[in-house]
Each structure stands twice: as C-alpha cells, then as structure tokens.
Amino acid sequence: MQIDCDIHPGTPDTAALFPYLPEHWRDISAMRGIADLHSTNYPDMTPLAARADWRPAKGRPGSDAATVAAQCLEPFGSDIGILNPLFPVQSFYSDDLAQAYASALNDWTRGDFLDRDPRFRASIVVSLENIEMAVAEIERCAPDRRFVQVMVLAGTARPLGRRNHWPIYEACVRHDLALAIHAGQEFRNAPTALGWPSYYLEDYVAHAQSFQYQLTSLFCEGVFNRYPTLKVVLLESGWTWVPALLWRIAKYWGGLRFEVPWTDRSPEEVVRDQLRFSLTPVDGPDTDQLRRVIDHLGSDQLILFSTDYPHSQFEGADPFPSTFDPALRSIISGDAPLATYARLGGAP
C-alpha cells in the first residue's frame, strides 16, 4: 500500500470554477475580470513550479484527473493520492468572496477529480479571513469521507496557535479530519520577519521558517494539549529543520514554561504524538547524514510519502533518498499515512 500525501491538481483559471460558483459570484467575477488567480507562491513558469516532464505544452500541469493519475499515481505505484489544491483562494480579503471561491474549489476537486477516479482523496481548503465561515465549509464538506483533512497555508495573518483559530481544530477533531498546513503564504504578512526578500528563491526557502513559527505557536498556545487526538500534517515543509527547532523549543520551554503552563509534554513528545511531515522536498544530502536526521527526529513514523507533483523536487520515479532502507520506505509509503489519516481507515 502506498499513499501519496501531497499532489497538486492544477486549477486552470477561475472559469474552471464557474460551474461550482453561485451565479452572483460568477457574474461578479466576469464583470470585474477575475480571470485567474496566479499565486506568488508558485509563479507558473519557474523551474520549481513544474517538473519539465510534467509540464504540458499549454496551461497548468495536472489539470484533469486522468493526467494526474497517469503522471503521478501509476509511475510511482501509488494506490491512493491526496489532492491539495493550491489555487490561491486565500488571496481574497473579502470574507464572502474568499468563502465562495474556497467552496467552489472544494466542489471542483470533488467533481473533477474525486468523482472521476476512486483512488483520489482531498483536502478541504478554507480561507482564514472568517473563522465561522471556515468552520461552516468544513461542516459542509465533512460528510464526504473522501475529504481527509482541512488545509491552510503556512503563512497566515495571525499565528495558527492563537485561540481565534481553535473552532477549526474542534471541527477537525469532530470529523476525524487531520489539519494540513501547506507551504505558502497568504501574504497577510511579509514572507519573513524582516520584510520582503528580493528573490523568489528566498521566498521559497523562507517557507521552512514559516512552518517553524507555526509549530512553535501551536505548541506554546496548547493546541496539542487541548486537542490530543488532532493530527497536524506539514506539507512541502521540508523536515530536516525539525530536530533543531524542537531542541530550541525545549531549551526555552525549560526556562519559560511559566508562560505556557498548559504544555504537559515536551516538544519532542508532542511531535512524535501529533505531527507528521511530507517526504518531499528532501532538503538534505543523499548521505548517511539524512539517515542521522531521522535519528534526531526520534521516530521513524513521522514522514509521509509524497511526490509534491507537479513541483520539481526530484528526478525520475523515486523520491526517496538512497540511504532509506526498504523497511523505512515501507513505513513512509503506507504505515505512517494510514496511521495519520483516520479517514483512510488505518487509525483507531
């Protein structure tokens, strides 16, 4: 059994969502010329946005179910693929517009992918502009068990641990949904805590730091203590930075836990219990050092198989580092994803 936990279907343009948008928002979109949402997180033509052999002659890669299955499930021998749409509905500032587009995107994923190939599962994409609306969207989609998680971006307006976000986590727990945090910015803040970089390369590298802030926030605010059954999956985050962050949190938890008295487990315990990371990108050398990073993580159960299709993170049909032995590959491919996603039937 292999489950690909991070696949990105390519929404061609806003017109692709029109069949799923209420008439009012279709009219508004046409009237205002909202023809596309082209995300600064992934400029289409950068070498990173699509692997050369997955880039179509025209349009965005992976824009239909058959193409994604042919390019991303079959060559890798994946039995199930989880779709994480990155069409940037989080860019809207208006509560209503954001909600309308998030709903349309979720219905597009369902109608154009889930209904066309039984191997697909998907994220419920929500905008955080209005938390009540986000929860309502989760409630709307949750009865469909093919949605296995709720997905937000790593760069948000307020840190994800802050309590205004907690109704989303309650909804996740209520419905056996994981919380996925995917690389990318809502751009409600600068991409770094020192402002806006000059280069896209810096933006991309900075996603790892965005995840580090969010993990720190979730830990300090007590989200893992309040919701001990919640699984949080970091997607396209990289994972070689994780041990150093946990050691840093542990360092200051030792001296400053009077600020966060509800934290009843060490950061390393919390991560082993409740955090998971997608395999790609593998930000490290293909040497024994990477195997050693797994030791530093303190568990071999934390990494979930992913291709990050269609992003360019590796060549060929094997995203694994060569130093990962068959037993570890087997855990990453199947055991760990099944234990993470209650809706895949593998968890209690």
Binding site: P159, R162, A206, Q209, Y213, C220, E221, L245, R248, E259
Partner: peptide
C-alpha cells in the same frame, strides 16, 4: 515587522525561539 511571518505571537518564549527563524532569513 511582526516577529513571525504569520503575525504577532503571544509569548516571550515565541519571540526567543523566533530569533532563530529571523536569523535564518
């Protein structure tokens, strides 16, 4: 700028941990 790329966290502990992220940037 806020001390994180996702706005202002709640705690001094987060500011202290966050220096390692802003230093990376």
């Amino acid at each position: 700028w806020p001390v994180s790329s996702s706005g202002w966290p709640s705690f001094y502990m987060e500011e202290m941990i966050g220096h390692s992220q802003s230093s990376q940037a």
